[in-house]
Amino acid sequence: MSSHQSILTETNMRTIGLIGGMSWESSVEYYRIINQGVRARLGPLRSAPLLLYSVDFGPVEQAQHAGRWHDASAILCDAARRLQAGGAEAIVLCTNTMHLLAGDITAAVPLPFLHIADPVARTARQQGLRTVGLLGTAFTMRQPFLRALLEAQALAVLVPPEEEQDALHDIIYAELCAGIVRAASRDVYRRAIDALAARGAQAVILGCTEISLLLQQEHSALPLLDSTLLHAQAAIDFILDGEG
């Protein structure tokens, strides 16, 4: 048997299907983190078996802001079906906001769905946290689809006041999703974190996959729970589960 055939025989990794493009700026981070994690665990020439379906964010964003969630659902469920047809063994939705439609996706395909809230809540519990701040899009901060799952894990979740939410939301869509990173916008986020700390937050969840493009731990007095990183690490665990 050739060494190439031996490698194929010995690889027991599972294939993840990534629904990305919302925005692709953060989808790149998923691809990077997952592959770096597999390489770190298995060796310098190893990489992750991944399928990526990257949607056109324009129609999704329009549907979000118009409240046409059924249209956005159709796009994501189609993506999930395509990934299943391509051989994906689980679905990772590379965005916090669109987890509002997690139920639609799980109904559309009979594959494990790695929910972004699960590794975030698990990490918060491991760190002994009781009260956390949540930053993200206005959809994520105002609607219960993410908060409720965190609160079900005995976490108190604080969000900024609505006027501040609007400013944070605008930075995500007008700047970070377009690959624009500005120091002035980082200061807006830092002030929001300071205000959450003053209200009792022990840590802050970066509940939008773009925020970590702008804000790292060095910029925050509070510990940061980066949902992108934690979600990608959960994907690595799933991929390598068969490797023993």
Rank of each mutant, 00 (worst) to 15 (best):
H169M: 12
D237C: 02
P161V: 14
I19D: 07
D166G: 07
L83E: 09
Q202R: 15
L93K: 11
G67H: 06
P161R: 14
A148V: 02
R199Y: 03
I205P: 01
S227A: 15
L83P: 09
H219T: 11
P144Y: 00
A235P: 00
L8H: 10
F57E: 05
L229V: 07
A107V: 02
R14W: 02
S3L: 09
D104M: 01
A63Q: 04
L50M: 04
I19H: 10
L114V: 12
H70A: 12
T11L: 13
A102E: 11
R81V: 13
R142A: 10
A154L: 00
V132Y: 00
A183D: 15
L149V: 02
I236P: 15
S6Y: 05
Q36V: 04
L134W: 01
F113T: 05
Q62D: 13
D78I: 02
S26C: 10
A221R: 08
A72E: 06
G20L: 10
G133Q: 02
D170K: 10
G136F: 07
A72V: 03
S2F: 01
H231L: 11
I116Q: 14
M141G: 01
T97M: 11
C77T: 15
E151P: 00
P44K: 15
R191L: 14
D226R: 01
T123M: 13
A72K: 06
D56P: 10
A72C: 05
Q126M: 11
G179E: 12
R32Y: 05
A203N: 12
E175H: 05
E164R: 15
I34R: 06
E89I: 13
L129S: 05
Q64A: 04
V55T: 06
Y189G: 05
L146E: 01
T106L: 12
A48T: 03
A63G: 14
V55R: 05
L149A: 08
R186Y: 04
A74M: 04
G58D: 14
A174V: 01
